[in-house]
């Protein structure tokens, strides 16, 4: 399915789920998300991670609503908990089936997102290892001067932002010397199709969710 369409479909469903309280629909969506997730053959560790970590917020919400609100509404508690899993499972179903570049290409070609947004963000994502190293270096520079920097220390952010400014500058220059010119048309190495079948699939999925929301308890 077309990556942009897939992304928007999941976003729409996630927002809809946030404003409705149908346990059965949530559970159906969780099941769908789980199937899609298993389809990508995740490692045992990834799967455990995806299933266990959300249990903390989900459990906390459910317990609070069920045990500590005046109404002791355990039904709504289950709705909230399942909602967390809808977000996580559908959300990761998108990211696990769509490489960043494919999504960027799709957004550029199918949604006419300016290329500078798509590739600027990708360039930043690819700097992650360097960002992690820089944060470690700043903290070490602090330790060597007798200063412990933590997430509440303005200087840690200050130094990191100075680095970011210089990286952004250098990366933009590098991209420009790789021929990138803002707002100039580009050719496409890989065409991301957006077919009638994609539209039909997206529309029917959305319709199905609407029907379920109306028809199911």
């Amino acid at each position: 399915m077309n990556p942009s369409l897939k992304l928007f479909l999941v976003l729409i469903i996630s927002v809809e789920v946030s404003f409705t309280s149908k346990l059965t629909v949530n559970l159906l969506l969780v099941a769908a998300g789980l199937i899609l997730l298993l389809w990508t053959r995740p490692s045992g560790l990834t799967l455990t991670h995806l299933l266990l970590i959300p249990a903390i917020p989900a459990g906390a919400l459910a317990l609070t609503v069920g045990a500590f609100t005046p109404a002791h509404d355990w039904f709504f508690a289950a709705v909230l908990a399942s909602r967390v899993y809808v977000y996580v499972l559908l959300g990761s179903a998108v990211t696990r089936t769509t490489p960043p570049l494919t999504l960027a290409r799709s957004l550029e070609q199918n949604c006419h997102l300016p290329a500078k947004f798509a590739y600027g963000t990708l360039a930043a994502i690819n700097l992650l290892p360097r960002i992690i190293r820089a944060v470690k270096t700043i903290k070490a520079a602090g330790q060597m001067r007798g200063v412990t920097l933590s997430f509440w220390s303005p200087r840690l952010y200050f130094k990191a932002i100075l680095s970011a400014i210089s990286w952004a500058d250098q990366l933009a220059q590098a991209m420009e010397s790789h021929g990138f010119v803002e707002d100039q048309p580009r050719s496409q190495a890989q065409v991301i199709p957006l077919t009638g079948r994609d539209w039909a699939l997206g529309a029917s999925a959305l319709l199905l969710v609407q029907l379920a929301l109306v028809a199911l308890p």
Binding site: N126, A174, S187, A189, V191
Partner: peptide
């Protein structure tokens, strides 16, 4: 600090797209 993309192939494709080389 000179690549926008993740692999050499993708960076090359990106560069050639910028130069509007036909697909």
């Amino acid at each position: 600090l000179q690549f926008a993309l993740d692999t050499p192939r993708h960076e090359l494709e990106f560069t050639l797209e910028n130069d509007r080389v036909p697909a």
